[in-house]
Design a binder for these strands. Structure first.
Ligand code: SF4
Ligand code: SF4
Lengths: 159, 159
DNA sequence: TCAATCAGGACCGCAGCGGTCCGAATGGTT
DNA sequence: AACCATTCGGACCGCTGCGGTCCTGATTGA
């Protein structure tokens, strides 16, 4: 199936939960609040911390804290942090396919990849947090969301 | 990783190859032309035939033929045929997640899913064949380069 | 010093994917 | 009618990678 890993899904849930409250929050606490198994939450948080999406405070009364506000975290970043870089096929952006010499489609996926990448960069976690589904097509909603909006045309421009 | 299955990749290669020549073509023939293992090509073609993307001619001198021109086949169709429906998470469009009652993010992925779905519907195999996706030259997309303030989801949604 | 908490792995069961193979149906060819 | 080429539908299997658990340190506040 064309789906993203469950851990990525969990990561979004955890990040949004982190934003709901100031100060540090512990893994068990978040697990209880999100109904996600505790070890899994810990694993996700460790990965996110490694990628710089959250900062950690060790020791007693430690915990995790968002590194930047939700509005500055595009979904693409979360996906890249957990699932790895977005690469639809093996031959996009650095990947090497064993038949790339012979394959007539070599490199043809790049634009598609760019399109999806741009789309995922244009949606932040803040949007997902307080967005009602289908609101994306309403002009009123679209009007006031702009951050990182330049990425899409730029990606398109160099096609 | 966030990638589509190799079989889907192969399907695109096979479909484009089918379009390069009129009349029916056999699995071994296509396999030889695309450098993809023959049984795999056969499997892909069988799946595609089942989904109605290609038509099959049985018996001697049989083979496969495109059901519709490349320009009428969006990438989304190929993905849906091989990989199954596009569903980023378990809770989108009919899918049910075990924690959908408790999860605060339930349903929030739908817009993201729709955005990607729209993007993949806006690019046809003919576009990929010519390496310059027509979707990116559409007024709706190019206009945003000047208007500024446009974001990926909106541009994608208009495709 | 002790308890709480994160860090970084090792570890495992398992679904699903990539890939192969075979028998049966089908329709030309002779 | 007999034969052969080719597709069809499905069974089959090894293996990767994912979801999930657990353990052993390192770090910090009380
Ligand atoms: S499009 Fe061709 S070169 Fe690229 S990953 Fe697919 S088979 Fe390999
Ligand atoms: S967002 Fe929530 S309800 Fe939807 S699939 Fe993820 S965990 Fe389940």
């Amino acid at each position: 199936m064309f789906k993203l890993s469950k851990l990525t899904d969990y990561a979004v849930v955890v990040l949004v939960r982190l934003a709901r409250q100031d100060g540090v929050q512990t893994s068990p606490g978040i697990a209880a609040a999100t109904f996600i198994p505790e070890p899994t939450v810990a694993k996700v948080l460790k990965t996110l911390a490694g990628k710089g999406l959250v900062t950690s405070q060790r020791g007693a009364h430690g915990g995790y804290r968002l590194a930047r506000p939700l509005a500055a975290i595009p979904v693409a970043d979360v996906i890249a942090a957990i699932d790895g870089p977005i690469a639809l096929t093996a031959c996009v952006e650095g990947g090497s396919c064993e038949s790339e010499r012979l394959c007539p489609m070599h490199g043809r996926w790049d634009p598609v990849n760019e399109a999806i990448d741009a789309a995922l960069h244009g949606i932040t976690l803040a949007d997902m947090d307080h967005a009602i589904p289908r609101a994306f097509r309403e002009p009123a909603f679209v009007a006031h969301r702009d951050e990182s909006g330049a990425s899409a045309p730029e990606a398109v421009a160099r096609l």
